[in-house]
Amino acid sequence: MYFKLSNGVAFLIVTGTYLTVSSTQAEELTSETLLTAQPVMCVALTQGRTCYANVTIKWDNISNGNFCIFQKSTQQQIKCWNNLTTGVYHFEFQSQGSVTYQLVNEKNHPIAETTINVSWVHKKSPRKRRWRLF
């Protein structure tokens, strides 16, 4: 029985991996700078629920400089780097809706942005039905 269940777990993990490899790269504002987030999609079970994901944001620029990442809608500063051409930031994403992040240079100009989209499996429903397991 346990052998069969372990086979099932492996099968599901392979399936899950196959289903989530369709992430795409974030957009660029300038050709000199690349800002990417992985994953770019956070999926919650139900519409309106807070979605959680471990996100990695990475940026690359062709020249050294001082850069900060901001959350676009709130203008909240997330992380800054000094005199670097590349940076990586890991954090736990928590949001009920899509969030756009911007890379801002020392002149306070956004030079790249990327969006983490929030989606869901089930549309929110007023029905509260529960089902027993067996």
Partner: peptide, 19 residues
């Protein structure tokens, strides 16, 4: 009967469940 059941989203179309 006592039971415990859990769901986790895999993608927009799929979810995993165990119970």
């Amino acid at each position: 009967i006592i039971e415990v059941y859990a769901q986790y989203p895999i993608s927009q179309k799929w979810y995993f469940n165990v119970g």
